[in-house]
Computed example of a mutant assay.
Amino acid sequence: MTRVGLEGQVAVVTGAARGVGELLARKLSARGARVALVGLEPEELKAVAGRLHGECGHWHADVTDHEAMARVATEVGERFGKVDIVVANAGVATGGPFADSDPEAWRRVIEVNLVGSAVTCRAFLPLLVESRGYYLQIASLAAITAAPMMTAYCASKSGVEAFAHSLRAEVGHKGVKVGVGYLSWTDTDMVRGADLHDVMRDLRQRLPWPSNRTYPPGPAVDRLVAGIERRSAHVYAQWWLRGMQSVRGGLPALVGLAGRREMARVESRLSGMRTGLVGAGGAADERERTERN
């Protein structure tokens, strides 16, 4: 597959203040892209921008806010003259039993991960049509196989995968390519935040290899960058995720059987489990909504 050089390309990355988004922005910039950072933490975004090569900019915006994202798209287009790449990376997570989950946190995961991705795409799609560009939707292993204690996250990532596949069929004739990026557990604030819950950490460690590992972000993001250069329809941040596609049809039955056993084992440890958004990114999202209200 032909690679598209990143030199001079304009790339928008949401959720760029930390984690995968921050590292992706740095690696795209190092390859000559001009990068627009979008996120909720202005000081963190400013710090990330200071570490980039060449021209860049940062915008404080909630990806679920239609008006804010439309404004960002307009300003990015005016600043750089075009947009070639959009990476919908912004995401939050919560964990725990659905019956005891915080309804607001559960809803917010869907809003940020699924609705926020659609809002991002809606805002930037006209610019991508102009440039015949590329939209990369960050999904997850959670889109390939669901897991107990992760109802909101799995629903949101399954949703964005379906959204991207549908969008690809709609806009391909206009020259816009659409990709889905799949990541397993990657060493980010989100995953470390989830691991603070001993039950979540225990359940994850008992997953079959290699899905029970936490992977370093560097090689994962290198694979994402390579996928962006190729305008790939599917990008796998860990090598084994590609193979999961061929067996995903049988996974719900297996997860159902194993999940029943595991949930019975940990049920006595679930009482009092905090079910808010996890990690520093989740805390930033909660602060933003508190200040807005």
Rank of each mutant, 00 (worst) to 15 (best):
H58G: 09
T74S: 14
D100E: 15
T74N: 12
E78K: 12
V112L: 05
A105H: 09
I85E: 11
P42C: 08
H58N: 14
A49I: 01
T94N: 15
V83Q: 13
D62H: 05
L114N: 01
E67T: 04
L40H: 06
A49G: 14
I85M: 09
L114G: 06
W106L: 11
V48N: 13
V83M: 10
L45A: 10
D62V: 00
D62Q: 09
V72K: 05
A99N: 12
K82P: 02
W59I: 00
L45W: 02
V83S: 12
V63P: 10
A68F: 00
E111F: 04
G95L: 07
H60T: 15
G95Y: 06
A49N: 08
L40F: 01
V48Q: 13
E111Q: 13
K82V: 06
R71D: 13
V76H: 06
V92N: 08
H60V: 09
R51I: 05
E104V: 11
E111Y: 04
L52R: 00
F98K: 10
P97W: 03
H66W: 08
K46M: 10
G91N: 08
A70F: 01
A49M: 04
P103Y: 03
D100P: 00
G91R: 07
L40I: 01
G95C: 04
A93M: 12
G50P: 02
H66T: 04
V83T: 10
R71S: 11
E41R: 12
T94E: 15
L45H: 04
E75C: 05
A105R: 03
G77P: 04
E75R: 12
A68R: 05
T74V: 07
S101I: 00
W59G: 08
G96D: 13
G57W: 02
R51K: 13
F98S: 15
G91H: 10
G57F: 00
F80T: 11
G54M: 06
R79E: 15
